[in-house]
């Protein structure tokens, strides 16, 4: 049963769905419940997705043997859904970036600043992942961008299923940029493809420069490494070159950008990277509104 609620707030139309029994959009059979909390909803009420299991029956030509050679990837469902997300985004020419980091590395501040600086040139939409609260969504909402907050509850990462539902609740016009802020965690998000175009790992200089050695998977699976809070470098023991060397050993294709989202220093490098990644939908020389 699919109930749709339409409501208008601040000149935008929001569609909210309350999906009971099964998910009609992705055919998911997942048992988990996750709440999508929508910023901007007049009551700020939440709705729940409950998915009861329903089982697919498909033919296999295994005969009547007692041993089934399955060779099935444990993450196959997530990966399949991630590819569907990727197709959906590609069809809309939406560039999606999955931002991963430890808690407190400055992802939300970077997003706030990016949206504020580039909003005249790019349409941004944001999916905020946190275990609890709508705090980050409220911060993003203040920039004027459309945002969906996903609270994973006890979950430690976003998965393709959560993103599948969330992105369909955003308007995502052609050529939009979808910023997905993952749950602050350098371990679990590494394993879960969301269907993003690029993955960005954010590390702040107040963390150790040995993070690549400690958490190799996230650096190995990312496309770009943003080194944030560089304005604090004079006050902390953080060797940028050491970090780059060890992360580069894990992933020779990893690109690095050093910036301070607070002071703005180095942001033009990030905006130029976004300009390249989005196919020059923003002009490099005009990357910043100022």
């Amino acid at each position: 049963m699919l109930n749709l609620f339409l409501y208008i707030w601040k000149d935008r139309v929001y569609v909210s769905s309350n999906i009971i029994n099964m998910c009609g959009t992705c055919g998911c059979q997942d048992n988990h419940n996750h709440n999508h909390l929508h910023i901007g909803k007049p009551s700020e009420a939440e709705h729940h997705h409950h998915h009861d299991e329903h089982h697919g029956h498909h033919d296999h030509s295994h005969g009547h043997g007692t041993e089934i050679q399955l060779e099935k990837d444990i993450l196959s469902k997530n990966n399949l859904l991630a590819e569907r997300n990727r197709g959906y985004l590609e069809a809309r020419q939406v560039f999606a970036i999955n931002l991963v980091s430890s808690p407190g590395a400055g992802k939300t501040t970077l997003l706030e600043r990016t949206i504020t600086d580039l909003s005249k040139q790019l349409h941004f939409a944001v999916i905020e992942g946190d275990q609890q609260t709508m705090n980050d969504a409220k911060r993003i909402e203040a920039t004027g961008a459309e945002v969906v907050q996903v609270n994973t509850g006890s979950g430690c990462h976003l998965d393709a299923h959560m993103v599948n539902h969330s992105m369909k609740e955003l308007s995502l016009p052609v050529n939009a940029v979808l910023l997905i802020e993952n749950v602050g965690n350098l371990v679990c998000p590494a394993l879960f493809d969301l269907g993003e175009s690029k993955r960005a790992v954010v590390i702040s200089v107040t963390e150790g420069d040995d993070k690549p050695q400690k958490y190799p998977y996230i650096f190995e699976s990312s496309d770009i490494c943003i080194i944030n809070k560089t304005d604090l470098l004079p006050y902390v023991q953080f060797d940028v070159e050491k970090l780059k060397a060890s992360a580069g050993q894990l992933n020779s294709a990893l690109e690095f950008i050093e910036l301070s989202a607070t002071t703005g220093k180095g942001l033009e490098l990030w905006y130029n990277w976004l300009a390249d990644a989005t196919g020059h939908r923003i002009e490099k020389s005009k990357a910043m509104n100022e």
């Binding site: 050679q69 060779e71 099935k72 990837d73």
Partner: peptide, 9 residues
Amino acid sequence: LKIKSLRID
């Protein structure tokens, strides 16, 4: 990370 096989009855 995969399920290699199942033995069923």
